[in-house]
Design a protein around this nucleic acid. Structure first.
Length: 411
RNA sequence: CGGGGCGUGGCGCAGUCUGGUAGCGCAUCUGCUUUGGGAGCAGAGGGCCGUAGGUUCGAAUCCUACCGUCCCGACCA
């Protein structure tokens, strides 16, 4: 891809309303642009990374026999009356009316819609289990949107819903998805800590959150310095210095970004919304449900927060918008452009390559490239006349002058 | 929703206290010179000063209301 055609509006100065590092960088690197409070446009580079994250999410779900579907963002009031949440949810629910004055809401989550979608079909234990997910834009009219993509009023989320005939089966899937989530975040370059949590507004029995340790996190995690115990401080009530409830260790505290959560919903929605099936004994039972969320846009932000300095991002390999960045320093030099073009064509056969074809000065190109954060950089400069270009590995910081012919072997 | 900021060309800001009709840096356009870390010189274009009222001969500046936005706190992927 030619950089001149990609639309990467980089900024020298961060917009003044950006506070945390990742927000500043995402604005400066031309990944996102704020449209309203808590509402953002994903520019081409940001969008590419989002798609990479979504690809990983789809891969890890599909291989565990989950099926993707797509539900509406606009949801009718009736379904929310059935679950009781039209009145329970409060002002966070974005409500609107159609021209006939009927009530709707913009979905903050999809338990109602998914239950409605499957309840007529799931009439027997033979139809279970079932696992359905979507990647979709969610709406929550937050009291206070915050920190760029960290807490938006509109955000992209993956939500999975599972349906079971027994607790054992729900537990099996719950554990299976726990592993899937850890894998997903690891592939996104994020190490997560699993902490047990309250079930909150969604309701249900048991829940775990996936936290990325970070200074800018909104949650405080109480964790054991020796064992594996970790919980959201808000619910556990444990503070730094307390004894671990599971072993001899001592509790410590850290800030975390919640990038995912999983819930055992039980029968909250199946009972209220009449999703019953006939079990092996011929009895009518409410179907057991689980739900599992991943904040896709928040994961994007967490990745930037973790993999950056003040000068720019260094993308984890699986979610980088491009793998290779070619910088021809003199765009008006024939040899430079010839070499740049041939390397570009060669590498593009098997890689995503961005070439900075703009007529900018070297300094501008370097600064922008640092910001944008593509892991491998090929600089075509002075030594091109001797058949050499510079190869920079941004993970290691290693810079080498290499023969043009050797380039493809290094990627 | 309470407390505190901020709103002036695309971005970052000065000017507001003490009213006199808008300025700086970057960016943009033209020309020349430059070309390995956000170039130099010369010239040019671009602003309902958040909105609406009010005070005044005169308002970016003073008063009132509203809107937007950010931060801190109470709720949440």
């Amino acid at each position: 891809m030619k950089q001149s055609l990609l639309f990467v509006p980089t900024l020298k100065d961060a917009p003044k309303d950006a506070e945390v590092k990742s927000h500043k960088l995402m604005a400066r690197a031309g990944l996102i642009k704020q449209t309203a409070a808590g509402i953002y446009t994903y520019l081409p580079l940001g969008h590419r990374v989002m798609k990479k994250i979504e690809t990983i999410v789809r891969d890890e779900h599909d291989k565990r026999e989950c099926s993707e579907l797509l539900m509406p963002a606009i949801q009718p009031r009736d379904l929310w009356e059935e679950s009781g949440r039209w009145s329970e949810y409060g002002p966070e629910l974005m409500r609107l009316k159609d021209r006939k004055d009927r009530d709707f809401c913009l979905g903050p989550t999809h338990e109602e819609v998914i239950t409605h979608a499957v309840r007529d079909y799931i009439n027997s234990y033979k139809k279970l289990p079932l696992a359905l997910y979507q990647i979709q834009t969610k709406y929550r009219d937050e009291l206070r949107p915050r920190f760029g993509l960290m807490r938006g009023r509109e955000f992209v989320m993956k939500d999975l819903y599972t349906f079971h005939e027994s607790d054992e089966d729900l537990n099996t899937w719950y554990e299976k998805m726990k592993v899937a989530y850890t894998d997903i975040f690891r592939r996104c370059g994020l190490e997560t800590k699993i902490v047990s949590s309250d079930t909150g507004q969604i309701g249900g029995k048991e829940a775990d959150e996936f936290m990325v340790m970070s200074e800018v996190g909104e949650d405080t995690i109480s964790y054991c310095d020796q064992g594996s115990y970790a919980a959201n401080k808000e619910f556990s009530g444990l503070s730094a210095g307390d004894k671990c409830p599971e072993c001899e260790g001592t509790i410590k505290e850290a800030k975390g970004i919640e990038v995912g959560n999983i819930f055992k919903l039980g029968t909250k929605y199946s009972e209220s919304m009449n999703a019953y099936f006939t079990d092996r004994e011929g009895k009518q039972k409410p179907v057991l449900m689980g739900c599992y969320g991943i904040g896709i846009s928040r994961t994007l932000m967490a990745a930037v927060e973790q993999h950056s300095s003040d000068n720019g991002i260094v993308w984890p390999s699986e979610i980088t918008p491009f793998k290779v960045h070619i910088l021809p320093l003199k765009t008006n030099d024939e040899l430079t452009m010839e070499v740049a073009d041939s390397i570009y064509k060669e590498l593009s056969k098997t890689n995503e390559v961005l070439i900075d074809d703009r007529g900018e000065r070297p300094g501008v190109k370097f600064k922008d490239a640092d910001l944008i954060g593509i892991p491998y950089r090929i600089i075509i400069g002075k030594d091109v006349s001797e058949g050499k270009v510079e190869f920079l590995n941004r993970y290691t910081g290693e810079k080498n002058l290499v023969n043009i012919a050797e380039i493809s072997g290094l990627i």
